[in-house]
Amino acid sequence: MPDPKAALAGHPFFSGIDPSIGETLAECAHEVSFPAGRFLAREGEPASGFLLLECGTVALELHRPGRMPIVLETLHEGELVGTSWVIPPYRWSCDVRALDPIRAIAVDARCLRGKSEFDPKLGYELLKRFLPLFVQRLEAVRLQLLDVYGETPT
């Protein structure tokens, strides 16, 4: 198994991380892999952590009764999957399905939240990395909602 500390530091989401913080994070991390087609999470299930994708693509899907599920977004190599672990009640807000064979670093949320309580430096570092991600995703959702290609630009 590759060393989670090196894998974490090498992932774009944690690029340039202070080595001591990287070490603490690695204590909550392990490598995982999933075959294509596997659901990595289901809407409503406890969000026990997040994944840093190293290889492969996942789809965030919303199921609809009697209709095909809709793909909200795809996430690719170098991206982070899962933000529901940050905010109570810590439950996945959509399904996550592997489109390809996936290799990722899984980070355990309970472990991370526990460490952040006692290590404000770690908590602040996480805040600085997750907050821009939330803003980027919010902006992307706004743009999707506008349906800029569909309707008149008036």
Partner: peptide, 17 residues
């Protein structure tokens, strides 16, 4: 693309991202 069904094998999301 902005919207797709699971049959689409490509990327879903906005261009700037």
């Amino acid at each position: 693309v902005d919207h797709a069904s699971p049959a689409w094998r490509g990327s879903v999301g906005v261009v700037p991202a």
